[in-house]
Design a protein around this nucleic acid. Sequence first.
DNA 1: GCCAACGTTGGC
DNA 2: GCCAACGTTGGC
Length: 153
Amino acid sequence: MRYWLMKSEPDEVSIDDALAAPRQTVAWTGVRNYQARNFMRDAMQVGDGVLFYHSSCPEPGIAGLAEVVSTSYPDETQFDPKSPYYDPKATRETPRWMLVDVRATKKTRLVSLAELRAAPELAGMQVLQRGNRLSITPVSPAEWKFICKKLIG
DNA sequence: GCCAACGTTGGC
DNA sequence: GCCAACGTTGGC
């Protein structure tokens, strides 16, 4: 059982959108970074905990909780020439981009980026490190517990 | 809109 | 394999 922080632009898929989806589940499409892909492909397991983070928006921060509900499989958008996520180098025989399904479990109060940065307990959190741009980052059990208990309640 | 930071591309 | 140029992310 591992824990992750996954960024989503709320204009694309917000926590409300995820909760409103069938089975509260969305396919995590559009990741086009190898490190983030590798986390989904190689490290994620069904049941892993997810902090659902809103990025590139007026109030960036953790907006909800979710869980991984599938193993990885090819991201369909890489094969679709009309998709903004189309990758001409990907084929169905050798897909390049993999994703998992994520089920939203709870909308929380917005725990802002500033609030996360203000907590000494979270100083080592990967998403808070200088220059971090990864859209998926691991979260330690201690960080997960602290965020769930102290910040979300 | 700005810009720091980082990833990717492609010439050599 | 190096590295400059370019593109993207994402907070502010």
